[in-house]
Amino acid sequence: MIGSGTRLEVSDNSGAKIAQCITQSGKSWGIGDTITVAIKKAAARSKVAAGSVQKAVITETKKEVQRRDGSVVKFHKNACVLVNQKGQPIGTRVLGFATHELRTRGLLKILSLAARVL
């Protein structure tokens, strides 16, 4: 349940810390969706500058994900991974969790980079 204005943590080593969703208002997105974000906070030696507009893939949401086998996965925070226009991750590491929902979207690069997959 990520909508316009939602702030997400950036869980990769691109240098960005906090991103804000700036896609079309009135819609909501979940894990595996690609959204447009504004970088609100970034580290000093960052690949992306604070204030720039980037694409990002949602990896963790506070809203639970219902799976086909009946189980439910839910995170304590909203998080995303920054990607370029082609959908390749900007960072070289994924620090948080990645879920199998990304596999159906063809985001295998993020899955392979992630240390922890649920």
Binding site: D69, G70, S71, K74, F75, H76, L118
Partner: peptide, 13 residues
């Protein structure tokens, strides 16, 4: 049993 349960992942993993 399979098909039940809610997995909650905290910020610290």
């Amino acid at each position: 049993y399979p098909g039940r349960g809610i997995l909650f992942v905290r910020t610290d993993g």
